[in-house]
Amino acid sequence: MSTKKITVTVNGTSHSVEVEPRLLLVHFIRENLNLTGTHIGCDTSNCGACTVLLNGRSVKSCTVFAVQANGKNIKTIEGMAEGGALHPLQEGFKEEHGLQCGFCTPGMIMRCADLLERNPNPTEEEIRWGISGNLCRCTGYNNIVKAVQYAAKKMQEAEAVPA
């Protein structure tokens, strides 16, 4: 079995690893790096439980090979809270009860991070379309929409206050 050496930065830490080309990015993250916050829900890129940021954009890591991430930056749910403080999205999901079983939550949050990056003040409609590739079986989505709105507001307020 031939392997490829890849160098990937995950949550700010660089990893150089020999991997089989067929190794899926989600398994690389979960098994090789032991970052088990990224989940697998469907295998067919429909559910979004495996969503991570690849060079800042949300992707479904069950449909990406680890070798495709060579030389790139990855952010997973484990990299969202910085300096002990929850990311506004994490806070929003808690405050607005945007999660129940928690299984879709990491992927949902990573997707929403990309959404807010591109559209800092989305409407309910835009949020719903924006998370349409992430399935949640528990919440009925109402409170996820509110969680994203909570985060958007908080992030804009933070932006408005000069550091």
């Binding site: 890129s45 690849l54 949300s58 990406v64």
Partner: peptide, 9 residues
């Protein structure tokens, strides 16, 4: 086409 995360790739 598909969804936003798929469209990112």
């Amino acid at each position: 086409i598909a969804d936003p995360s798929v469209r990112n790739l």
